[in-house]
């Protein structure tokens, strides 16, 4: 494992399988009456959120607390620049307070990479979503959910997703979830197909390890999982598609379309869902939809990542302080 988790593309197959297997261990903790491990006792993790994201922050916070870490939440609305303080100064200020890991969500693509590689701070950096770049823990929790449902909870241990056919539908262009999933699913041996109107597929997608289709109906019968990505209503004002209605007619998943999927196939959504847009209520509330499971699995995955990156329960005092450099 690397010291930071910045991009799903940085993970090898063995890294990824180790995280998924570790997350299964962590999931067992959640089944206990006392959902807590002493692993990160004395370690401090800061959740540095420059972008509003209640669900991701709460998920990380739950994971950190279940591992007994001390948690600091830092929320800055808008960009660091609009606040007047730079990302560098904010990060250095927090590290000066003795932080072992920084979980960062930022609107600018590459901000976590800058934080990890610019020599600004020494702490481990975990990317909790940066701009339209990456959201690696989301991809991991999605892969975890797929492995459980398509391979099996116990049967899946040590396994990847070889041969599984995964379809991602929606706003690929603006989606960090799509980028992370394409990278990770490819590493895990799955076959990925992206489905979107051509306006929402990035120029340059030809270098990605996946197929691209503009036709949802033709891919459904060949999918073991269909993941719907949120489509923001504002996009139609920028002429990415004509109307909400037309989008949902061509690319939304309703009951009729779901019926074309193989019986074992699942429907996934990273949330928040826009019901009536990319997904109908009938599908969202069906047994086949794993949206809620994904949330639960997110905590296990984030516990696994924190555990593996921070390397168990070393006392905080051995962590090199900035002034010793």
């Amino acid at each position: 494992m690397q010291r930071h988790l910045i991009s799903a593309a940085d993970l090898t197959r063995d890294d990824a399988v180790l995280i998924l297997d570790t997350a299964e261990e962590m999931a067992r903790v959640a089944d206990r009456p006392i959902k807590k491990l002493p692993t990160l006792r004395g370690r401090t993790v800061v959740n540095l959120f420059f972008e509003d994201s209640t669900r991701t922050r709460i998920s990380f916070e739950a994971a950190e607390k279940r591992l007994s870490a001390d948690v600091i939440n830092f929320t800055a609305k808008g960009s660091s620049v609009s606040k007047g303080e730079s990302l560098k100064d904010t990060a250095q200020t927090l590290e000066a307070m003795g932080v072992d890991a920084v979980v960062i969500r930022h609107g600018a693509s590459g901000a976590p990479y800058r934080l990890a590689t610019s020599g600004w701070i020494d702490a481990a950096v975990i990317n909790a979503g940066d701009g339209t770049h990456q959201h690696p823990t989301q991809a991991l929790l999605d892969a975890f959910t797929m492995r459980r449902r398509l391979v099996g909870r116990d049967a899946g241990l040590g396994q990847d997703l070889a041969g599984k056919r995964i379809t991602l539908v929606g706003d690929i262009l603006h989606s960090r979830v799509a980028r992370s999933n394409v990278d990770l699913l490819h590493t895990l041996g799955a076959e990925v197909t992206l489905v979107a109107p051509p306006t929402l597929v990035p120029v340059g997608v030809e270098s990605w390890p996946c197929e691209v289709s503009y036709d949802l109906d033709r891919t459904l019968s060949k999918s073991d999982a269909v993941m719907l990505l949120r489509v923001q209503r504002e996009r139609m004002n920028a002429a990415f598609f004509p109307t909400e209605r037309e989008y949902s007619r061509r690319y939304g998943l309703d009951g009729d379309r779901m019926a074309k999927m193989p019986e074992h196939a699942i429907v996934m959504h990273p949330g928040p869902m826009v019901r009536g847009m990319e997904i109908t209520a009938e599908v969202a509330d069906s047994e086949r939809c794993t949206a809620i499971e994904q949330v639960t699995n997110g905590v296990s995955i984030r516990m696994a990542v924190l555990y593996l990156l921070l390397g168990g329960n070393e006392p905080a005092a051995t962590h090199p302080r900035t002034e010793e450099k």
Binding site: G131, G204, E206
Partner: peptide, 18 residues
Amino acid sequence: AQMNEGVVSAELGLGGWP
């Protein structure tokens, strides 16, 4: 626009300057 639009911008998730 943040960088040249192409293979690299698609990967990095930076707005393209075509």
